[in-house]
Structures are given as C-alpha cells and as structure tokens.
Amino acid sequence: MGLEEKLPSGFVLTTVEQAAGWVRKSSVFPATFGLACCAIEMMTTGAGRYDLARFGMEVFRGSPRQADLMIVAGRVSQKMAPVLRQVYDQMPNPKWVISMGVCASSGGMFNNYAIVQGVDHIVPVDIYLPGCPPRPEMLMDAILKLHQKIQGSKLGVNAEEAAREAEDAALKALPLIEMKGLLR
C-alpha cells in the first residue's frame, strides 16, 4: 500500500488521517468468512431486506487478498483455527476483524474440547458482537461502530503512539477475576 510510505509529518498528518479514514470506512470489503449459523444471518444482512449496500459493502470478496474486513461468523473449531489464521494473514493491511456471535467471541455455550474459546486467541478482534446469532440489525450496528473506529484510526507516528498507549492500558488493566463489585 502506497499511502503509509508517503505520509507527511506534523499537522498535515491529521488531515491525511481524516481523509484516509473517510475513504477507508466508505468502501470496506468484507471477506466471506461464514462458518455456522451466524453466516446465514450475515448473508441475510447482505440480502434484500437489510441491504448492506446502503453502507457501501454489499460486495463480499471471495479472495482474502481483496478484502479488508473479516467477519468471523460462527464457532471456530480447533481444526478450523489454522485456516482462519492463514486467511487473516493473507488479507492486506489495513484490516479489521468483527467477531460475530457469542461462539466466535468467547466460545459461547460450546465450552468443550472442539471449539476455540474465543477467536481472539488467534487473531486480534476489533468488534465483539454478542448474540446467538445476532440479528442483522446488530451486525449493521457493529459495522457502523467499526466505521467510526476506522474513521478515527491513526497513521504513521500517530499510529505507533496509539498502539503504545493501547499496550500500556492493556498491561495496567485489572484481570476480570480481580475486579470487585457488581456484575456490570
């Protein structure tokens, strides 16, 4: 990708970020990565009633090389995990991942030997979408949230700094089991 190598510095970078984010969010190409029940809802989202074309992303790409969004739609088995990772690696940067449905997000009700307990063990996830399966409206909401995230994404030195901050925050974060108080 040529953009990353030709970045300006200073305040112009922020303007470039905004322009690049706007362009990127307006033409996201999802890869067809349907696994289970959620894939059917993903296809429904692309079909007539919910019409994903309104957000410029009804064209699901068959080849991961032409896609920049992977919607992991369904339960990821131990056998599928290496395949999923390979597909992710084949996608060009910048790329995003939506973990659609509770199985992909945390293993869900299938807490057993066969299912990977959360696709974030394999690939970094940008949006976790709950539901079993999530309604098409929920998927669209997740996609719009991802659009916001893409719009605000950083480039160049800013991106490095943002990554560092995120890393620091993650290191300081309290593990779930040590949290106290109400369950919310």
Binding site: L35, M80, M109, F110, N112
Partner: peptide, 11 residues
Amino acid sequence: IGYLHTGIEKN
C-alpha cells in the same frame, strides 16, 4: 469435513 465440529453430542 470436520471444520465445524462442535462436540454438541458430548456437550
């Protein structure tokens, strides 16, 4: 096949 084996019968 087996890429979607979920272990439902065991669960």
